[in-house]
């Protein structure tokens, strides 16, 4: 019996360890005395799996928990030579972020505007174009699809350089619209491609019956197909939001005092004279937590979304 099929829920009582009685005679007969080591090994496998999962959890969560903890520590505890596991929590770091010279407020507004609007535009245009792409029979469709996906995969560094020149010519440096356009360079192709994958899942017989019932093509799309891909729309929006919100490479080149986003605010705390790690972990928490919640909210469709529709999960 394959180890993956043993239910780990109830630990096996020690009496049944040899396991002869629990085996169907058909498979047990030819193997004879090999039974006992087998059960042993399945047991060992289960322990190993548990151990590995614990290690993976620690490796994954310790940095995040440490960031969260540190953001509630006072200045001495944050940079204590011996890590402080027990401390009296304080909101000082967060309070300092919103008062004094470098108030975090505007950065949050910039981040929300740039990421939010670019994600909305990407999903809106992406839904239209994705639907067209999923249903069209035009010649050269493959080339079109390839062009779209290769735009998404273009290295940021290769896009930033010419965009910098163009934006400078157009006066879009240090502006929210500039950032939105920059984020659309990766969010728009992503949204088109992913929405097209979601639309392709909807059988086109649905539109046909809508058309027979007297709908126009637009009505069939708007009233029949679009509502069926609501989860696709939400997933695409959230992933676009996460990509844009997390961006650093574009913002560090294109944004100035009137458009700097949260990741830039975080990196600006790194100065020649020293780093305020308390405030930095607080900004880190503010940047990271909303996106984690948003990402987990669409967990069911994450596989589809992150493989650009190549794999449909669950």
């Amino acid at each position: 019996m394959s180890t993956s099929m043993t239910p780990p829920a109830s630990p096996m009582p020690p009496e049944t360890l040899p396991g002869e009685a629990t085996r169907p005679p058909v498979t047990a007969a030819p193997r004879g005395e090999a039974q006992s080591p087998l059960e042993d090994s399945s047991r060992r496998t289960r322990w190993l799996v548990t151990l590995l999962i614990v290690v993976a959890l620690l490796w994954t969560l310790v940095p995040l928990v440490w960031m969260l903890m540190s953001s509630f520590k006072n200045a001495e505890a944050v940079t204590a030579a011996t890590p402080q596991f027990f401390f009296s929590p304080t909101l000082d770091n967060y309070r300092n972020l919103f008062s004094g010279a470098n108030n975090l407020g505007p950065y949050i507004v910039h981040s929300v505007l740039a990421a939010g609007i670019s994600a909305l535009l990407a999903v809106g245009l992406g839904a239209l174009a994705g639907y067209g792409l999923a249903r069209t029979h035009m010649r050269g469709k493959k080339h079109l699809a390839f062009w779209i996906i290769s735009t998404r995969m273009a290295p940021i560094a290769a896009v930033v350089v010419p965009l910098f020149l163009i934006f400078r010519g157009l006066g879009l440096i240090d502006s929210i619209p500039g950032l939105i356009l920059a984020y659309l360079t990766f969010n728009l192709p992503f949204a088109i491609w992913l929405m097209s994958a979601f639309f392709a899942e909807v059988p086109s017989s649905l539109e046909e019956s809508a058309l027979v019932a007297g709908c126009s093509r637009w009505q069939a799309f708007w009233m029949v197909i679009l509502p069926l891909t609501k989860s696709g729309l939400v997933t695409t929006f959230i992933l676009c939001l996460v990509f844009a919100w997390n961006d650093y490479a574009f913002a560090v080149v294109f944004s100035g005092p009137s458009s700097q986003t949260l990741p830039i605010a975080a990196s600006q705390l790194v100065t020649q004279t020293g780093i305020d790690w308390g405030q930095l972990t607080a900004i880190g928490t503010i940047v990271v937590v909303p996106m984690m919640l948003a990402g987990l909210a669409v967990r069911r469709w994450l596989v589809t979304g992150l493989t650009l529709g190549a794999i449909t999960g669950e």
């Binding site: 994954t60 960031m67 997390n246 961006d247 880190g284 990271v288 996106m291 984690m292």
Partner: peptide, 16 residues
């Protein structure tokens, strides 16, 4: 729980 790091901004990951 194991998926969480994926949503963190890479620049924050670096600073952390």
């Amino acid at each position: 729980l194991l998926l969480l790091p994926m949503f963190a901004a890479p620049s924050i990951v670096g600073l952390l």
